[in-house]
């Protein structure tokens, strides 16, 4: 007989919160049931408010600080790797596959941690304009990003749906569906990390119930869809996004510099050179 192991909460603005609707849904793993929040429209709106604040705070950290914060997160994940491994195994992975996934996830964290203070060097440049001007293209993060996790039972994939945008300095609202236990568990490490409140928010639920609210929300600057969506869902998202020209990326790259590119804006500054 399975037992209810734990009731998880969303993680928004540095706090564990129930869905304001009070609704939950049940995720059944090998030995346990978990009750997890079924995110409502109102929860999305609250998450955006938190993410906006979190964005400002996350922005204030220097790239060097961001590297350290992400590295510290990797240390905590590593310290708790048994917990994640257990969830993965309960979700059906073999021990060795689960181990490998955790190892990959930690490697991903290390890679992006070390990228936080480098991506701008790799994407910006001094432009050789014809004339007596200093012209530099530097990069800024897009703002509040909603990321939709894949359906895989993979801790690494979860992180790869979060880290590219987070590393550029965006604040993230990470949304997972039936595999949300991993994300909700990650919230505990986020909470213990030095990430500013609201920089990374974790929601769980049924994406189709909030698809309109997210894609219509003007203060979500970008949506990154890592999950396979139906054509009609993609259409809904893009149609809604067009009202405020929200940036939509569907199945963006999850490795290399190119994984960060969808989340940056290029700002080019000109200045004359004279006496």
């Amino acid at each position: 007989m399975n037992e209810i192991k734990k009731t998880y909460k969303n993680y928004v603005g540095g706090k564990y919160v129930r869905s304001e609707s009070g609704k939950t849904f049940r995720i059944e793993l090998k030995n346990q049931f978990y009750e997890v929040p079924l995110t409502s429209r109102k929860d999305v709106r609250d998450a955006v408010v938190a993410a906006k604040k979190g964005y400002t705070e996350w922005q204030k950290l220097t790239p060097y600080n961001k590297t350290q914060v992400l590295y510290r997160l990797s240390e905590m994940v590593e310290g708790n790797s048994e917990t994640y491994q257990q969830i993965l195994q309960e979700s059906g992975l073999t021990k060795s596959k689960a181990n490998q996934d955790i190892k990959n996830a930690i490697d991903s964290l290390i890679w992006y941690a070390g990228m936080a203070d480098k991506w701008e060097q790799m994407t910006g440049n001094l432009n050789p304009v014809a004339g007596d001007y200093f012209n530099i293209s530097h990069q800024e993060s897009l703002g509040v990003v909603f990321t939709l996790n894949t359906e895989e039972n993979s801790f690494n994939q979860l992180l790869l749906s979060i880290l590219p945008s987070l590393t550029t300095g965006c604040s993230v609202i990470s949304f997972s569906g039936d595999n949300s236990i991993l994300a909700l568990k990650l919230a505990e490490d986020i909470n213990n990390s030095d990430l500013p409140s609201g920089a990374l928010n974790i929601l769980s639920g049924n994406f189709s119930q909030i698809i309109d609210d997210v894609s219509n929300h003007v203060e979500i600057n970008a949506m990154a869809i890592y999950k396979d969506l139906t054509s009609s869902d993609k259409k809904i998202i893009r149609e809604n996004a067009s009202k405020s020209l929200k940036r939509i990326v569907i199945k963006p790259p999850t490795s290399g510099l190119e994984s960060l590119l969808p989340f940056i804006e290029t700002k080019t500054v000109w200045h004359p050179k004279g006496r």
Binding site: N135, S137, E265, K267, T268, W270, P272
Partner: peptide
């Protein structure tokens, strides 16, 4: 919040200089 900022000059363009907007001024450079 703007994709091109001219400091002590304005309306300067160059093929090597990326141009494009933030927010509802569009996307891409």
């Amino acid at each position: 919040q703007a994709g091109v900022i001219w400091a002590n000059t304005f309306n300067k363009f160059d093929p090597s200089s990326p141009f494009g907007g933030y927010k509802e001024s569009g996307f891409g450079r």
